[in-house]
Design a binder for these strands. Structure first.
Lengths: 351, 351
DNA sequence: AGTGTTTACGTAAGCGCTTGAGTAGGTAAG
DNA sequence: CTTACCTACTCAAGCGCTTACGTAAACACT
């Protein structure tokens, strides 16, 4: 197992200098085909793999992009975990990074352990993508002084950093407008996620936008809050129903909407007959749940890709002007809003 | 942004040698409290983060564990993507690694680009976790000569490497036995995943185990195959139904089972009234689909954790005997098999 | 033949840390 | 007063690469 040979052995074995070995391994040219083959063969024979650390030190580029995301599981309520979309974002980041020969380092911040972890990661990477709710604003500020940083779905407006995110506000406004225009609902309750989540805040704002645009009264605060979890959604809706029975319940995400569906089912209220429900995110289960959930699709994968694309651009041009990317979302109309067809109507929009 | 200062500047600023700065940063002791604070302060002031590359080079440990997984999306059929469980495994790995101050580097192999990528990753990490179907056996062999390797859910029996995986065979045998014993089915068809997938093969073997144990005829080959995708499951079951109508359809994973449900619904066959269906993996949608899917739960997160635990042990003791960990699975009895209750009966078992 | 250009290398100086060996000064034990 | 042993450091030699810079030989062109 792992003897860890060095470039010197390979150089000696193939009768060339280490510089030549290095050139061959990096595929940069400046050597004959014969030399190339000889070097490659020697390397293979002794099972040599160039040390990433040595490379990184000498070239001052590690070829690694870090992604920091929150793992809410270990801190807050026991049930809660990282939002499902995190995985998709990571996948997108991985894809974009691998495409240009970079690797992705992932680390979840849990509770207060964030700062230390972030610094440890920062030292290992060329750039850092920081997802919402993984670090405090001050920590992001501090970190971004030592390593190029892109913020993801974060309170991006206040910062001088590159950012990428989805059009949460516009997406939510679109479904709520659908509820109003197509179905004629006027009494629409909003079940929000955690108030510290920028996504949650933006979605509530979108909900209000739609109501205001339709000249309906727009509540100052959500009717209930559910922490973005299924259980939280159940709780919130149960509570909500003790007070009133709106025509529609708009949830801040799909998990909560699924929780809502369960509660309504138990209360013998038919969805969408008695009450309509919508979600946000378009997770896999949204399609499978009955009735199928009307929701808003976020291009998570693309967002992850964009994050590293922006990152790479920043690394190439450190002084380029700040970029802030907002990707459009899509309404996915299924049955829980009252629409008949099983068809999936989509529409694009940006704010 | 990112000026990238060095340990020398910090040493000078705080009036100590670089060795002392290094010790302070690594928390190893051998300095006074006053010195520690001075160093920490200087570091903070200039926004210095120790270079991971330099650290790695000097200490010959990068503190990074690599995870290689397959992204089937870009190669085979366009629809297909990495199995869903990959994300869970990665999360588990991340959790276990972070707990001991390591980071996780992820990389998806797509099509034939695997080898190169793997080598690039191998150079950057202390150890590598290789998931099933991400690399050919030869590549795994080659890589494992230069970096400690743990294989995950792989044809582990044939290798000299540490491995971790779930008890696919035992889990499948358990549900099929349930179908036979509790429901009295004797005509049970198996819809398999890709034949190159070790998981798929093991599950078919478990299916046969159960039939053999019950003295029922055990087919030599699956009744149909579906590539582990929802669409593939639909195709396979559609095909299967043209030939015969078994009492139960046992699918190699949940996605295919969900596809099966859709096809059966369209064919006006009631599940489980006319025909029972089971899956494997217990993905989120299995709970939400109607009827709720009877399936087998795999502890993906724990498996990911185990993989890095085994890895770390190997790094600590390179010459320890090989370890092969098989985690038990759990039957999750829902309604699609014919059981009444909405309760989730679980039972443990190991092969 | 003389000159410029290209190809295919080699030389050696770092990159920014860690770490083993060494040391000064203080304290405790004999 | 020694001698031994801490504690709190410093010194400097690497770790294994990359990359300016240099150069000899081959080739092209006048």
């Amino acid at each position: 197992m792992s003897s860890r040979s060095t470039i010197y052995e390979v150089a000696q074995r193939s009768g060339v200098s280490t510089a030549t070995v290095s050139r061959v391994m990096r595929d940069v040219g400046g050597y004959s085909a014969a030399t190339r083959d000889r070097v490659r063969a020697s390397a293979r024979e002794i099972g040599w793999v160039p040390s990433g650390s040595a490379r990184g030190l000498a070239s001052r580029r590690s070829g690694i992009i870090g992604v920091l995301f929150p793992d809410l599981g270990s801190s807050g309520e026991t049930e809660e975990e990282s939002p499902l979309y995190v995985d998709q974002v990571i996948r997108g980041a991985e894809r974009a990074a691998t495409a240009v020969g970079h690797a992705v380092l992932i680390a979840a911040t849990r509770g207060t352990s964030g700062r230390e972890l972030a610094y440890s990661v920062a030292g290992k990477v060329d750039g850092l993508v920081v997802m919402a709710r993984s670090l405090t604003e001050q920590d992001v500020d501090a970190i971004s002084r030592s390593v190029p940083t892109v913020v993801f779905a974060n309170r991006s407006s206040r910062t001088r950093l590159d950012s990428v995110g989805a059009d949460n506000r516009g997406g939510m406004a679109a479904v709520v407008t659908h509820l109003i225009d197509e179905h004629g609902y006027t009494d629409i309750a909003f079940v929000s996620g955690p108030s510290r989540s920028p996504d949650s805040v933006a979605r509530f704002a979108g909900y209000r936008d739609a109501l205001v645009a339709a000249d309906l009264p727009a509540p100052k605060a959500p009717a209930a809050g559910g922490e973005f979890t299924e259980a939280g959604g159940e709780r919130a809706v149960r509570e909500l129903l003790t007070e009133r029975r709106p025509q529609a319940i708009v949830c801040g995400n799909d998990e909560m909407a699924i929780g809502a569906l369960a509660v309504l089912g138990r209360a013998k209220l038919r969805v969408p007959g008695d009450i309509a429900v919508t979600g946000f995110d378009d997770i896999a289960s949204a399609r499978h749940v009955r009735p199928a959930l009307t929701t808003v699709h976020q291009p998570m994968r693309e967002l992850g890709e964009q994050a590293v694309i922006v990152m790479l651009a920043r690394l190439r041009e450190p002084d380029a002007p700040r970029r802030s990317i907002v990707l459009p979302t899509q309404s996915v109309i299924r049955r829980s809003c009252g629409c008949r067809g099983r068809s999936t109507t989509t529409r694009r929009h940006t704010s």
